[in-house]
Design a binder for these strands. Sequence first.
DNA 1: TCATATTGATTGATCGGTCAATCAATTTCT
DNA 2: AGAAATTGATTGACCGATCAATCAATATGA
Lengths: 208, 208
Amino acid sequence: MTSRAGQADKRRRALISAALREVSDAGSLDVTVARIAARAGVSSALAHHYFGGKEDLILATMRHLLAEFGDAIRAELRASTGPRDRVSALVRASFAPDQFHRATIGAWLIFYTKAMSSPEAARLLRLYQRRLQSNLVHALRPLVGGAAPALARTTAALIDGLYLHEALKREPADPDVAIALIEATLDRAIGDRWQAGTGRAVAAGRPV
Amino acid sequence: MTSRAGQADKRRRALISAALREVSDAGSLDVTVARIAARAGVSSALAHHYFGGKEDLILATMRHLLAEFGDAIRAELRASTGPRDRVSALVRASFAPDQFHRATIGAWLIFYTKAMSSPEAARLLRLYQRRLQSNLVHALRPLVGGAAPALARTTAALIDGLYLHEALKREPADPDVAIALIEATLDRAIGDRWQAGTGRAVAAGRPV
DNA sequence: TCATATTGATTGATCGGTCAATCAATTTCT
DNA sequence: AGAAATTGATTGACCGATCAATCAATATGA
């Protein structure tokens, strides 16, 4: 059964999961190590034993979220078909059920503010931003050429902005309308030069 | 000299301003009443005397920010010329130097997270969102008709998303590129049915 | 038995809030 | 006008609560 070895990772996972839920429930980082530990079914001393301190536990939770998001990106990207769908895959990944669950949405926002006072948190978040930006530019380049960076920035801002708005709503999160809004914006920017469905760029775009 | 009347408002203003700077500097709401009061040049007890408690001081600071934003909106709207410029006015107001100052950007974000644990903060923020949304729909209606609500939501999300990104950057904030990104997105959505400069809608839009 | 896992108890520090006391300005009374 | 009374502004000192972190002691599996 639960061999003594391997307990460590199990506990770490349990503590990270508990921290995520606790932070999300509280709606802030004002959560006590004791409560997180209790939720994970262990003592607060054990949390310190495994993570060294509260800060490290929080950062580990952040890293966990980032890693999960990276997985979602890779999965959607692998399943995507053709250039235009690559862009949609990135949007879909951002709003994948896992990322877009009630508990996760608020946590993202909380970690954003954490980044304003914690250099390590800022570093992690910038890493996520750079990766998404780079993925978007790469996917958009064959569709809009030199306009890719600006459109990528716009899309990234749109994604985060819709997350932000979702965090304040009472109703259950609905990824579909968010996705639809982004896709419509993308279509307007791409549509001029890209014939959806044909798989190839049209000869000339509309001026300006 | 400093007549006793009017001292109260002066102190209140000083405390709110100090709270804003302190919160912005700390990058979080983990600021002590003592430090805020010290920055305002008074004792912490006085802060309690005027505001009742830390929570109320923070909420008053939020209200101040909201009110300032409302002023910026009204000013830009009053100076706007024609329907298309009305939309731009709302965008400009959102990135007006006052709102878009280093200290203010972070504070907005912090207040967003505060709204997740404070019903009153949530109420205030939703008020701001509703007002911006309603202003945007009103301004967009003559330009895009029934598409106004969706485009308004997109624009609002874009504004907040760009704020979010700005909060994480080290470089000084640059409102112009943010505005340019939003205007380009708006032009793509409006351009089809609205000839910029002519002041009237074109006969037919591009299908889809 | 030995190492690791786990805990309960404790501590030192921080902070929000309260309160009694002081001080300065203003009003009232004579 | 001038003394006395009243009101509001302001403070330093203090209290109670909270919490992260530590540590010595105990349990558990190999």
